[in-house]
Nucleic acid binder design. Structure first.
Lengths: 120, 120
DNA sequence: ATTTTTCATCGTAAAAATACGATAAAAAAC
DNA sequence: GTTTTTTATCGTATTTTTACGATGAAAAAT
């Protein structure tokens, strides 16, 4: 007898919703790092105190609008902070979130725990 | 005068190709970790010596075929290794690659270098 | 020999990511 | 006041990811 899966009710149930705690958090940060352009941007920023959007546009092999889009994703992930300095916008690392991400990756690769929420 | 972008020749040029070295490598591993199901799978594996596909299917809120797909992505990234034990398939961490990824993330978060290829 | 178990793969649909050019907004420069 | 500079956002096309059920293969169990 064919049975539907209990988690797939109607159209496209998103099982990602089912995940919680550090598992979800870590996946979120990993996703933010999952594009070389965003790695580059963060590498760039981890040296200078700040950079302008134009600085990234200069060094990345993509259109300005695409760079802006990548910056937005990093913003949304919380890893960087935008500062309006009209007509320019500068960006800097959000150190609090940066350290949090660093910790999560450290823990993950050290495999100290299986618990989702072992470290709060 | 409207000018095309130098990197956008015909249909959909993929600028990801332009990135190299550890930037690209790191983004690749980050992508492999960019889904909570895959984080869970790796967490699972970093405890036991190995797990069967069915073990993951039991604990993940998704269909068996989807779990297989996630396992494939981790395989393709090199992070896990499949072992045929008919009729089952067991998986284990690929420790060499695991350590490599760990190192890249460590370096990245320590921001010791701006070079793509500082650590070979 | 047939059935069952286990799992990858196929086919496919829906959603998300990635890219571009064009446009708009907002301050600076002229 | 107009132009220029800078950057985010809009609209859109393409590709990739994520998900499912169905199917097939291969060994074990019956």
């Amino acid at each position: 007898m064919p049975q539907g899966h209990k988690f797939y009710k109607k159209k496209c149930y998103n099982p990602r919703k089912e995940f919680q705690g550090t598992t979800r958090e870590l996946a979120r940060y990993a996703k933010a790092l999952a594009h070389p352009a965003r790695i580059k941007i963060l590498r760039f920023l981890s040296h200078s105190d700040f950079c302008y959007t134009g600085d990234f546009v200069e060094v990345l092999p993509m259109a300005q609008s695409t760079v802006s889009q990548h910056l937005k994703e990093l913003r949304d992930a919380g890893l960087i902070i935008a500062n309006e300095q009209p007509p320019r916008v500068s960006y800097c690392i959000n150190h609090e979130v940066w350290e949090r991400a660093k910790l999560l990756f450290q823990d993950f690769f050290s495999a100290l725990t299986d618990e989702d929420d072992a470290r709060p």
